[in-house]
Every structure is written in structure tokens, then in C-alpha cells.
């Protein structure tokens, strides 16, 4: 029992990461609003940030900025990868939103079901 609890608390970050990931997946599949879908996609992306940053952390360590008073640092490599991923993430989110704006102008709606009924190709 104690062992299972310890296992749970040692992997709690991963469980929350997985929860965020499947929440994003659920929103992308289940919700019809295109903006909501994009927010779900960015939730999914944020869970990947956590997935990378969690193993980089050392309890008792410090941020990866060298100072002679510290010896234990977090691993800087996942930080670099996620830093660029965040900026690229917002750029691609803006691109997706631009597409949504064009879809709204063309179909008059951002709901997926209505777009399918209005689209002459889908009949």
C-alpha cells in the first residue's frame, strides 16, 4: 500500500500530463467549434511541454544558469526545445486562427456540422 502510494506520488506529474493530453484530444475530437478545437490542440501541446520539463528537473537543483555557489542544475536541453516550441506554437495557432477567419467569411459559421451541411462537395 505504502509502495503504491509512493509510486503514485513519484509519477504524479506524468499522470497530470496524460490527463491534459487526453483532454486536448477529447476537445479536438468531440467539440465542433473550430476555435475550441484549436484551443484543445494547444492544450495538447502544453502537455508536451510538461512531458519534457518534468524529467529535466532535479529536486534540490537550481535553474541552469551557472553560479559558483551551486553545483546541481536542471538539464538545459529540454528547456531549449520547449522554449522554441512555445514560440512556434503561437505562430501556428495564429495561422490556424487565420484559416478559421477565412472559413467564417466563406461559410458564415465556425461550427463543423454546419460547414459540412453547407459544403456542396459533401453531398
Amino acid at each position: 500500500m505504502m509502495d503504491a502510494l509512493q509510486q503514485f506520488s513519484a509519477h504524479y506529474n506524468y499522470y497530470i500530463t496524460i490527463f491534459l493530453m487526453i483532454s486536448g484530444l477529447f476537445i479536438v475530437i468531440a467539440r465542433g467549434n473550430l476555435i475550441k478545437k484549436l484551443i484543445g490542440l494547444s492544450l495538447f501541446q502544453t502537455s508536451v511541454y510538461l512531458l519534457y520539463l518534468t524529467p529535466a528537473k532535479i529536486v534540490g537543483g537550481t535553474a541552469p544558469i551557472y553560479d559558483k555557489n551551486f553545483t546541481v542544475y536542471a538539464n538545459p536541453l529540454p528547456h531549449v526545445l520547449m522554449l522554441t516550441a512555445i514560440v512556434v506554437g503561437v505562430a501556428t495557432l495564429a495561422l490556424g486562427l487565420a484559416l478559421v477567419v477565412r472559413i467564417k467569411e466563406a461559410y458564415g459559421t465556425v461550427e463543423e456540422d454546419e460547414i459540412f451541411t453547407k459544403d456542396p462537395e459533401s453531398e
Binding site: 520539463l53 536542471a74 520547449m82 512555445i86
Partner: peptide, 11 residues
Amino acid sequence: ALDAVDVAMTE
């Protein structure tokens, strides 16, 4: 809290 200060600033 995860010691990723640069990433936190970006986020």
C-alpha cells in the same frame, strides 16, 4: 517550480 525559468518567461 520546475527550474525552467527561460521557458516560464516565454510561456
